[in-house]
């Protein structure tokens, strides 16, 4: 399979913009927040991305950015003499006042805890997540520490 074909097919989907290739086996694109669930469903069912590698939340001040990395285990492109597995990087932008997006944990089981982590550390709300609790920080912790405006005390010793 050609990576360019995949890129064109993906960019024809609803809500997709700015599709580009960042490496020989990686496609990068932006998705509209409202059509994200539809896109991800197609991605899993039609394009064979069966593994959700990572969900990153970035505090871009003012808005939030979610970066999804998906891996295809069985699909590969031939670059030179090697068969490289295909990856996809999807960016979704969220407003600061309403950092909500539809959960994909029903599509990929591996996304479940990535979403919990993004909620825990960055305060992104995933609608439809079965169990959106803090995962790393204790219950009752105030605030979301990876946000840039999170203030905490550093015990700096005086020399």
């Amino acid at each position: 399979m050609e990576i360019k074909e995949l890129m064109q097919e993906l960019s024809a989907l609803k809500g997709v913009s700015n599709a580009s290739m960042i490496r020989d086996n990686v496609v990068k694109l932006d998705i509209d927040k409202n059509s994200s669930k539809e896109f991800f469903t197609k991605l899993r069912d039609d394009f064979g991305f069966e593994h959700c590698s990572l969900i990153t939340a970035i505090d871009n001040q003012p808005e939030f950015e979610l970066v999804y990395h998906f891996t295809s285990v069985n699909k590969s492109v031939t670059v030179g003499s090697t068969d490289m597995s295909v990856m996809m990087e999807a960016h979704v932008f969220l407003e600061r006042d309403t950092p909500t997006i539809e959960s994909i944990s029903d599509l990929w089981g591996g996304a479940n805890w990535h979403e919990r982590e993004a909620f825990d550390l960055m305060g992104i709300y995933f609608v439809g997540h079965p169990d959106l609790r803090r995962v790393l920080l204790p219950e009752g912790f105030a605030g979301h520490p990876l946000r840039k405006d999170y203030v905490y005390e550093i015990h700096e010793e005086e020399w």
Binding site: P145, Y150, Y152, I154, H155, E156
Partner: peptide, 13 residues
Amino acid sequence: SGGPYWDSYSVVA
């Protein structure tokens, strides 16, 4: 003393 994690928000000193 907290070691390399001296400036962490979650590690006790």
